[in-house]
Amino acid sequence: MSIMYLLIGCSLIMAIGFLAAFIWSVKSGQLEDDYTPSVRILFEDKVSDAGGTEKKSDK
């Protein structure tokens, strides 16, 4: 049963890791704006070729 000590140690380290990740995410402002990133991720970075006219047709 002494394997339990190791397992408990591992689980605690993982939990502390998650707590640290949470604190980091709060600190870096990820929880302040939960809408804009969801839109931003859909923007395509168009490769700006020299004569790049718009590819998409107008609606």
Partner: peptide, 23 residues
């Protein structure tokens, strides 16, 4: 007005809660 302080507290309490329950 950032309620970051509250979020930290909540995170710490959640951490304690989960692990104590598990143990």
């Amino acid at each position: 007005a950032t309620n970051n302080r509250l979020l930290y507290r909540l995170g710490v309490a959640g951490f304690s809660f989960g692990n104590i329950m598990l143990i």
